[in-house]
Design a protein around this nucleic acid. Structure first.
Length: 867
RNA sequence: GCCCGCGUGGUGGAAUGGUAGACACAGGAGACUUAAAAUCUCCAGGCCCUCGGGCCGUGCCGGUUCGAGUCCGGCCGCGGGCACCA
């Protein structure tokens, strides 16, 4: 008997599926539709194990849904714009477009051998002009509907590379590429009005029952709804036009503990003073320095500048408070001004200590001493406190009640009003980059900012650009900017900013429903295919991508590009874990880590070793055979990265074992939402198991064993397996489903049943395995005379009668501890079971003639005798 | 600082409040073989044992329950998200 030759077999079945066209999705009113989507990849050039895991999970779902009679849409595309392409161009002198399309071709070639049930006829890349042209059309529609606007905003500006940097690209206050000190600069940028949807995006989270609670919570926190009081302090002798300072607070119950007013360096009052006074200007310049990252902020010293101005406290006009400009106050949250309450806030306490301002309390612990001068008293909102001053009254109550009472009191006394604020800010989409979707607007001297005419779309990126100088190549292009004003026809300039790449990924799922449509979507197709029934991807996109997509779906619905039902585009979301791998590390003489490839490491007595590495001047030099052997430090469960030398290339694995092995392994060892560690032995074991299944099936195909009493037992096991595997796949319990398949394989291997029963069992096993290991399943199915393709064969149904055993083994507990067991017919009435249990030796012995206090019989489960 | 999640054998993990450790990895013993590979069989939480079994055991302490890995409260540890957010 020959062995299972995975690679040949897999290529053959992929061809068969292709020929049969079974993954081509077409509208069909007869069958229920099912849209399964995995987050599309960035075309870096190589697929990695994370991709394999992600797309395999999607494929399991897709194939299962095909087998259960659904009309499945399972598309694939490329998130193809972005900085790596430009960086590669700058480094090697190529063109981002060539680099990107070459990478797409490479990755597609690596992906196809996985045997995914993808409808490749729908494939597109976001850098295709056909795609980004439709994105430009969407932008124009958004503009018309007031969903996008232009305003000045403070950004991280790299003065050397001459571009805006995302917060993630600012490290220690310096640009990640140039190393230059990042400046906060005000630029005119385009923004999506996502904050207008804050309330709706928050409330709709409650409807997303099939999303992970964790993701919903993260979005909830990101949107950051808060309720507080907005009111004004009147300014004494302020500059003209500045007679009050508006502040927002979530703790109005601390209003009587105010010590100072703080305003942002970007506050209109600060700017006014800055224009008039050199000392203020110097301070503001100092305060604006440094990035806006968490890290930069953490290190920055809290600085204040006393403007000399004073305000009056709203509840006591004789009470005057100083106005400081402070570097820690943000202009784009609340009103850009705060009142400082040192008694109940650590930062304000530090600030007041530093600038010698009074520290007052407004409430204290109920039954403990607290020295407010030494430290602020910061209770939880739910903690009960003893109020000591006005506004919330002087009763004992929780902070939460105090806040509400304070808002009511202030409103009743004409001091401000209760307001709701959100942390969510509008989404700045302008990027000073070449490799992105051009923003389709024109700057005209007479007409101002004018939307491009739709018939001029797509506004294509020029191919002839150079990356030899910093800044945006579109800005430097000799002719690309020149155009005619769509409104007056005079010569005008194109906008050279491109869109944030998150825009590209915010609507691709909708485009897949009609990838060739002449408008962004085709409503008939969208009506049929939307929503995505199952979306699968990494938790790292829990906030930005998923929130942006939710916003985009709403915006597209408003513009008539999506049906009403699609405002929440993803019905179910699954976030899968990473594929990790051990790191093998030694150290050179300077103590710096040296990493070793898995194949350099060998194991003895559970310890890992490599040939010694000797280092001269930090250069690691490998010494020859008879050199010292060095024990390696093994760091488990690490993210795969080239620099740590712990990357496993899927293509290598597929060449060695076949795709089914890789697919089986990434699903088998851990629950899908958790990380899974890739191990060579695990992969080998997976391969060994698949070969075994094939061998068992091949033996069955050639056997002529007659029917036997064992048949019934085997078929009962089979139906239980169908039931459990089906439930496992339905609930994303792929690892549990696979464990069940292992168990059933063992049963089948040992069974003495006849050929007919075994053949049925093996064909069913092939069906149950087909979502995970489709090639092997087809091969077995064909070998055992299955009709057509196993991929399209109807999913097996468990026979309920076969799921119930005639007899069950019932454990008997005495006082909750397992002491014995009895075998009883599964339909035996409780009273009979009780009698049997009481008659059992162990029970009689334990009772010692006494009556039991209580007997609990859980049919089919357990008996508990309480003494 | 605020919010959330998770702690089960040597390892990954399984277990609608009902026999804890399924299934697998690594390990051990054996069969087949001249040998190896491949394959197959068996063992395997810990501690005792008169070989029937007994005691302990799901991070720690307590609670609810006939019964808790699972529910509740507190602690310890690890991981994740957010954060000059007023």
């Amino acid at each position: 008997m020959s062995r299972y030759a995975a690679t040949d077999v897999e290529a053959r079945w992929q061809e068969a599926w292709d020929k049969a066209g079974i993954f081509r999705a077409r509208r069909d009113a007869e069958r229920p539709k099912y849209y399964v989507l995995e987050m599309f990849p960035y075309p870096s050039g190589r697929i990695h194990m994370g991709h394999v895991r992600n797309y395999t999970m999607g494929d399991v779902v897709a194939r299962y849904k095909i087998a259960t009679g659904h009309n499945v849409l399972h598309p694939m595309g490329w998130d193809a714009f972005g900085m790596p392409a430009e960086n590669a161009a700058m480094a090697s002198g190529g063109h981002p477009k060539d680099w990107t399309y070459a990478n797409i071709a490479d990755m597609r070639a690596q992906m196809k051998p996985l045997g995914l049930s993808i409808d490749w006829s729908r494939e597109f890349a976001t850098c295709d002009p056909e795609y980004y042209g439709q994105q430009q059309a969407l932008f124009l529609d958004f503009l018309e509907h007031g969903l996008v606007y232009r305003k000045n905003a403070v950004v991280n500006w790299d003065p050397v590379d001459m571009t805006v940097l995302a917060n993630e690209q600012v490290i220690d206050g310096k640009g990640w590429r140039s190393g230059a000190e990042v400046e906060r600069r005000e630029l005119t940028q385009w923004f999506f009005r996502i904050s207008d949807f804050a309330e709706e995006l928050l409330e709709a989270l409650d409807t997303l029952d099939d999303w992970p609670a964790k993701v919903r919570l993260m979005q909830e926190n990101w949107i950051g709804k808060s309720r507080g009081l907005q009111f004004a302090f009147s300014l004494i002798d302020g500059p003209e036009g500045h007679d009050r300072i508006e502040v927002y607070t979530t703790r109005p119950d601390t209003l009587m503990g105010a010590s100072f007013i703080g305003i942002s360096p970007d506050h209109p009052l600060a700017k006014r003073l800055e224009a008039e006074r050199a000392d203020v200007a110097a301070f503001c310049a100092q305060a604006r320095k440094g990035g806006t990252t968490a890290e930069a902020i953490e290190k920055a010293e809290k600085l204040g500048f006393d403007t000399g101005l004073r305000v009056r406290h709203p509840f006591d006009t004789a009470w005057e408070l100083p106005v400081y400009i402070a570097n820690f106050i943000l202009m784009d949250y609340g009103t850009g001004a705060i009142f400082g309450c040192p008694g109940h806030d650590q930062r304000d306490h530090d600030f007041c200590a530093k600038y010698d301002l009074p520290i007052l309390d407004t409430f204290l612990p109920i039954d403990a001493e607290h020295d407010i001068q030494a430290a602020p008293f910061v209770p939880l909102k739910s903690e009960r406190v003893r109020y000591t001053r006005l506004v919330a009254g002087d009763e004992v109550q929780t902070g939460e009640v105090g806040v509400n009472a304070a808002i009511d009191f202030c409103e009743a006394n004409g001091v401000g009003q209760g307001v709701t604020k959100f942390r969510l800010r509008d989404w700045g989409l302008s990027r000073q980059r070449y490799w992105g979707c051009p923003i389709p607007v024109v700057h005209c001297d007479t007409c101002g900012v004018v939307p491009e005419a739709k018939e001029n779309l797509p506004i294509r990126l020029p191919d002839d650009v150079s990356f030899d100088a910093p800044g945006n190549p579109l800005d430097r292009h000799p002719t690309w900017r020149d155009c005619a004003c769509p409104r007056c026809g005079a010569s005008a300039r194109r906008e050279t900013d491109t869109m944030d790449t998150f825009v590209d990924s915010s609507w691709y799922y909708a485009r897949f429903t009609a990838p060739d449509a002449a408008t962004p979507t085709d409503m008939a197709e969208a009506e049929y295919w939307m929503n995505v029934d199952q979306y699968i991807g990494g938790i790292e996109h829990a906030i930005l991508h998923l929130l942006y997509s939710r916003f985009f779906a709403r915006a597209m619905q408003i513009c008539g590009h999506l049906p009403d039902k699609a405002i929440e585009p993803f019905d179910a979301l699954f976030t899968q874990g990473m594929v990790t791998h051990e790191i093998y590390q030694t150290r050179d003489v300077a103590g710096r880590p040296v990493y070793h490839l898995p194949e350099e490491v060998y194991w003895r007595d559970g310890k890992a070793f490599v040939q010694a590495q000797v280092s001269f001047d930090g250069q690691s030099v490998k010494v020859d055979e008879d050199a010292v052997v060095v024990e390696v430090e093994v760091i488990p469960s690490a993210k795969m990265s080239k620099s740590k030398k712990n990357v496993v290339d899927p293509s290598t694995i597929i060449a060695q074992y076949g795709a089914d092995t890789a697919r089986w392994f990434v699903l088998s060892d851990s629950p899908p939402e958790r990380d899974v560690e890739w191990t060579a032995s695990g992969a080998e074991a997976a391969h060994r198991h698949l070969s075994r299944v094939w061998r068992i099936a091949a033996e069955i195909a050639q056997s002529d064993a007659p029917a036997s009493p064992e048949d019934e037992t085997l078929l009962r096991e089979m139906h239980k397996c169908i039931d459990e595997v089906t439930k496992g796949i339905d609930s994303f319990g792929f690892n549990a489903a696979i464990a069940r398949l292992y168990a059933f394989t063992n049963t089948l291997a040992k069974s003495q049943a006849g050929q007919a029963a075994k053949s049925t069992a093996a064909r069913t096993l092939a069906q149950l395995m087909s979502p995970m290991t489709p090639h092997l399943a087809e091969d077995i199915w064909a070998m055992l005379g299955g009709q057509g393709l196993v991929t399209t064969a109807p999913w097996p149904q468990p026979d309920p009668a076969m799921l119930i055993d005639d007899t069950v083994i019932l454990p008997i507990q005495i006082n909750g501890k397992r002491r014995a067991e009895i075998s009883v017919p599964s339909d035996m009435p409780k009273s009979e079971v009780e009698k049997l249990a009481l008659a059992h030796n162990a029970v009689v012995k334990a009772l010692d003639g006494a009556q039991p206090k209580k007997i609990i019989v859980v049919p089919g489960r357990i008996v508990n005798v309480v003494l």
